[in-house]
Amino acid sequence: MSENVGRKRFPDFDLAGGTYIVTGGARGLGLCLAEAIVEAGGEVHCLDRAEKPEEEFEEAKQRVRPESGGSLHYAQVDVRDTKCLDEVIGRIAARRNRLNGLVAAAGVQQITQAVDYTAEDVTRMLEINYTGLFMTATATARQMFKYKCRGSMCLIASMSGVVANKGLLTPVYNSSKAAVIQLARSLAMEWSSIKEDGTGGIRVNCLSPGHIITPMVEKNFEEVPGLKEKWEGENLMGRLSTPQEFKGACIFLMSNASSFMTGSNLIIDGGHTAW
Rank of each mutant, 00 (worst) to 15 (best):
T123M: 12
R124H: 11
M125L: 15
M125R: 10
E127V: 07
I128M: 05
N129A: 08
T131Y: 15
T131C: 12
L133K: 03
F134L: 15
F134G: 05
M135R: 15
T136S: 12
A137K: 07
A137F: 03
A137H: 05
T138I: 15
A139K: 04
T140V: 11
T140A: 11
A141T: 12
A141P: 02
A141E: 11
A141F: 09
A141L: 13
M144A: 09
F145Q: 09
K146M: 15
K146I: 08
Y147R: 10
K148C: 07
C149Q: 14
C149F: 12
G151C: 02
G151P: 00
S152M: 14
S152E: 13
S152Q: 08
L155P: 01
I156S: 03
I156E: 02
A157V: 01
A157S: 15
A157T: 09
M159F: 06
S160M: 12
G161Y: 10
G161Q: 06
G161L: 07
V163K: 14
V163P: 02
A164Q: 07
A164L: 09
A164T: 08
N165V: 09
N165C: 07
N165R: 07
K166S: 09
G167I: 00
V172G: 10
Y173S: 02
Y173Q: 02
Y173C: 02
N174C: 14
A178V: 04
A178H: 15
A179T: 14
A179S: 15
A179I: 13
V180E: 05
V180D: 04
V180H: 06
I181N: 11
I181C: 12
L183I: 05
A184N: 08
A184C: 08
R185S: 07
R185V: 13
R185K: 15
S186H: 14
M189H: 14
M189Y: 10
E190T: 13
E190C: 12
S192Y: 01
S192C: 08
S192G: 14
S193A: 14
S193D: 12
I194W: 07
K195C: 08
K195E: 14
E196Y: 01
D197F: 01
G198L: 12
T199W: 05
T199L: 05
G200Y: 07
G200K: 06
G201I: 01
G201D: 02
I202F: 01
I202M: 05
I202L: 11
V204W: 06
V204Y: 05
C206W: 15
C206L: 08
S208C: 12
S208F: 02
G210M: 03
G210E: 04
H211Y: 03
I212T: 03
I212K: 01
T214G: 09
M216I: 13
M216P: 02
M216G: 02
M216C: 01
K219C: 03
N220L: 09
N220Y: 11
N220P: 02
F221I: 00
E223H: 08
V224S: 11
V224K: 10
V224Y: 10
P225A: 06
P225L: 07
P225W: 05
K228W: 00
K228H: 03
E229G: 08
E229D: 15
E229H: 06
K230I: 06
E232G: 01
G233D: 10
N235L: 00
N235G: 00
N235V: 00
N235E: 00
